[in-house]
C-alpha cells in the first residue's frame, strides 16, 4: 500500500461535482483506494463512494491522505493527487 498527503485547493472543497469527478477517476482503477481527512482526524473511507467523500467534510484548506493498494496503485494515486491539485477546473 502507498499513501500520499495533499491539500484541497479548489474553493468549494470536495462537495458535489468535485466529489463526483474524484469518484469517476477512482473507479478507473482496480486498486483499493481510500481517502482520509487528516485535518479533522477522520477515518479512511472508500474513495470510490461519493457519499463517503461527502461525509469527509473536506473543504478548502483541509489536508487529505490518499492511499492505494493493488496492481495499479502507483498510477491510481498519482492520477487522484493530480486531480485534487488541479482544483477540479475551479481555479
Amino acid at each position: 500500500m502507498i499513501c500520499r498527503l495533499t491539500e484541497i485547493v479548489n474553493p468549494s472543497g470536495l462537495h458535489g461535482r468535485p466529489a463526483a469527478q474524484l469518484v469517476e477517476a477512482a473507479k478507473r482503477y482496480r486498486s483499493k483506494l481510500t481517502i482520509r481527512n487528516i485535518t479533522e482526524h477522520g477515518e479512511a473511507v472508500n474513495a470510490k463512494s461519493i457519499v463517503r467523500i461527502l461525509s469527509l467534510s473536506a473543504s478548502k484548506g483541509k489536508t487529505v491522505e490518499l492511499c492505494a493498494e493493488g496492481e495499479d496503485e502507483i498510477q491510481a494515486l498519482e492520477d487522484l493527487i493530480n486531480l485534487i491539485d488541479s482544483g477540479f477546473g475551479e481555479i
Binding site: 458535489g16 472508500n46 463512494s49 457519499v51
Partner: peptide, 16 residues
C-alpha cells in the same frame, strides 16, 4: 448538468 452528474454518482454509489 452539474447537479444531475452528482445525482448519478449517488445513484451508483458502491457503498450504498
Amino acid at each position: 448538468r452539474a447537479i444531475l452528474d452528482v445525482h448519478k454518482s449517488i445513484l451508483f454509489d458502491e457503498e450504498i
